[in-house]
Design a protein around this nucleic acid. Structure first.
Lengths: 223, 223
DNA sequence: CGGGCATTCAATAGATTTATTGAATAGATA
DNA sequence: TATCTATTCAATAAATCTATTGAATGCCCG
């Protein structure tokens, strides 16, 4: 026979583990990571993650049941978004833990970054100084709507997929510091490689926008 | 064909989800919660969680493979312990998230508390007043070492497992406000029930020490 | 060296999770 | 009202996770 205390604990841990289970799938982790940038439709999420629509929807239902995401109808589309900042905070916590304890993760990131030969990254403190001094072009290479929702103060937006054809908008004389979402987002690597290749003085800020914003550093948004 | 970027993401999310998966089981969550108190043997963990030894061992292997716990031989026993503070930090983050978003959890805690018929809890503001006025005994029922690391200003320490035999140290005339860790810790409920049963005027402060300290209310520590 | 004890391993059946498929639904638009 | 479109549901087979059992391992101590 179980004591009341045992039953209580069983319930609590059972319920709490549901949250962790919902996060414990690679596709759903990628979805959380993506939704941290803002609300997206099922179709967009599916395209980003390379899943079928039906499969994506199914994973979104799991996240919704665990109260990690919520929906928001707009016209013919349904936008999914995180239910709160604490969802992203927990995902960050898990990511940090994984990155600290899992050698495979470290190796994969290292290998991928090394493949680009993009030199060392600018630190947040260095970038803050550059932003204040105004002696560097800060370049946001994320998709444009993510830029509009929030970006580093004084940054300009050229999404990666437009960078090649719009590259003349940039100056070869000033240093360019490019950034994207951060941590696991590798848009910035491709951007810096492209810029360097075209003779620009480009460096990367690979902490990304989320980290910058979380530090309370200056941001802006356009409406 | 998958792009290099897609392969990279697959690897990363696959690996990161392993950590979340390891945490995504009620038994393993309880083990993590227990190991936060310090190292324990398999047998102790099994007894505490109500599992068989073999099953406990199996879950511990899962946690070990995910690098969340490590072993430490001592004589004939093997002690399991968390591999770092960040493991507990992540578990805390998950717990907070679950408690914030999961109605079942809130309800279970509520119901369990109600089962003790310990009356209503003292709010933090009320307790603050009582502490200032000095017209209540503030009683810390956590294990003694936790009391020493930090406690509510002017609280006295009688760990729950010593309360029955040391109960005469308390006065029946003054109101007693007991507290423990908070959230999932139910020591305080048992303490108040015991005190009431012995004719003391006891109430509970069930936010617990962590909440009190986080509010910036007065605390003290002994060395 | 050998008995005893704590822990792990291996096998298995039952439960849960996952991706895929094609059909169903619910809002918007006309 | 009928049609269109984005999204969800339902069914299924394959994969993975879980608890249980009993046997195997490895370490201590006499």
């Amino acid at each position: 026979m179980k004591t009341a205390a045992r039953k209580f604990k069983d319930t609590i841990y059972q319920e709490l583990s549901k949250t962790a289970k919902a996060l414990g799938n690679p596709h759903r982790m990628e979805i959380i990571d993506l939704l941290a940038q803002g609300p997206f439709t099922v179709e967009t999420i599916a395209r980003y993650t390379g899943m079928t629509i039906a499969n994506t929807s199914q994973h979104l239902q799991v996240l919704k049941n665990a109260q990690l995401v919520a929906i928001n109808r707009k016209g013919n589309h349904i936008y999914y978004q995180l239910t709160g900042e604490n969802v992203y905070a927990t995902w960050t916590s898990l990511r940090e833990l994984g990155m600290a304890h899992n050698a495979e993760v470290k190796k994969a990131i290292d290998d991928y970054r090394k493949g680009y030969h993009n030199g060392t990254a600018v630190t947040a403190a260095e970038l803050l100084e550059k932003v204040h001094a105004g002696n560097a072009i800060v370049l946001d290479v994320r998709p444009e709507d993510e830029y509009h929702r929030g970006h580093i103060h004084n940054a300009i937006s050229i999404p990666l997929d437009q960078l090649e054809k719009r590259i003349r908008e940039l100056s070869k004389k000033q240093e360019i510091v490019a950034y994207c979402r951060g941590s696991l987002c590798m848009l910035v690597e491709e951007a810096v490689a492209l810029l360097t290749q075209h003779g620009y003085k480009a460096r990367k800020f690979d902490d990304g926008y989320m980290d910058w914003a979380l530090k309370g550093y200056p941001t802006a948004m356009t409406i």
